[in-house]
Design a protein around this nucleic acid. Structure first.
Lengths: 198, 198
DNA sequence: GTAAGCATGTAAGCGGTTACATGATTTA
DNA sequence: TAAATCATGTAACCGCTTACATGCTTAC
């Protein structure tokens, strides 16, 4: 969900062409958010139409010309709003990862709230799984056949929610730790600039 | 991927109508595989066209008539083949969960091989993340700003792959343990019958 | 000479979501 | 009387994948 925002985050870190973005999505961002080049080209076009990015054609002699995109003021505003906005159910982990990666361009405090919300949801789901485990698999050690298979699927759910909750806790701890330091305020103006504005 | 096979597994456990399947996908199966009722209806139709399921219209007086589906011989064969078939990159965890849930209708030994393969892939990815961690974040304790955010996203990847590998190991251990018991062979004929054949 | 990298696109198709539609029965 | 349950469907749309297409440069 919301490839637009993932692209915005990437473009905030460094302006680039569709091709360059596609390569980034193959590497770092692609570990948790994949996108083909066709998808990126079309999304960039749409974003340019809406005014979230500015296009600049760069003419090259040895190589094909390229269109370099960078977030517009509206795009930066949209990203900022999206980061603070409540994160839906779909693809939550990947979405939160993108928001986290773009935290410098938004409100870190609001993001901490969302991680708290998501951690609570994970813990709730975990207790649901725990109840199913206690009710349906009291003697988990001695299972076989379909019951064992069902139990092992349940185990995946339990392990997953535990991991999710642990990750959220870690994120919350580290982000609040930084937020508390008055000499290093995350919300400072100079922190909200693109990385390539040097 | 492959809602067809998830439906087949569910129908092997118990024959049912599209509506009933939709309700099951809201509950147990839905924890790791979601599907709307429209999606299920269309998929069932397609499956009936291909001959993977047999349709039987059940006339009811107090309630609307319904179409009860059960896997055909071809459907059962397709399911069996799919469970042994190599699992692709996309949505691997959910796919393996479905295969695991349907293990009784396929070759458990082949499934163990796939979990082994997937665990190895998780461990390889984990070591990739570990290398990035060592290279880019040698002093992870004292990070702030964008570097901290990037590190925390990386942490999600590390935790995820660890969890995945742990789950696979658990599944492999439990499945092979059962397979080794000669008095309880998973591949026996009477184990491969639908659960509602009583 | 061939493959890989740079760079952008069109077109077809597919899986999935959302909205809309119908209509009876049971429960609150 | 309103809402929920049972039961199945059509239609529009959207995001994404896959295949196809072009053309130049650099490295092996």
């Amino acid at each position: 969900m919301s490839l637009e925002h993932a692209i915005l985050v990437s473009l905030m870190e460094r302006a680039g062409s569709g091709y360059e973005l596609a390569r980034r999505f193959d590497r770092s961002i692609g570990y948790f958010w994949s996108a083909s080049h066709q998808q990126i080209y079309r999304t960039l076009k749409r974003m340019a139409d809406v005014g979230w990015v500015n296009q600049e054609v760069v003419y090259q002699n040895a190589r094909p010309d390229k269109k370099v995109y960078r977030p517009s003021t509206e795009g930066q505003e949209a990203l900022r709003a999206w980061i603070s906005e409540e994160t839906g159910e779909a693809n939550t982990r990947a979405t939160l990862a993108v928001k986290l990666r773009g935290a410098s361009y938004g409100d870190t405090g609001a993001l901490v709230d969302q991680f708290t919300h998501y951690r609570d949801a994970a813990l709730r789901q975990l207790s649901v799984y725990r109840e199913i485990e206690a009710r349906d698999f009291p003697d988990a050690e001695s299972l076989s056949g379909r019951a064992l298979h069902q139990y092992l699927v349940l185990r995946a759910g339990i392990l997953e929610e535990q991991t999710l909750a642990a990750w959220c806790s870690e994120v919350i701890a580290r982000l609040t730790e930084v937020l508390k330091q008055p000499q290093n305020p995350e919300h400072a103006r100079d922190e909200a600039q693109p990385a390539d504005a040097r």
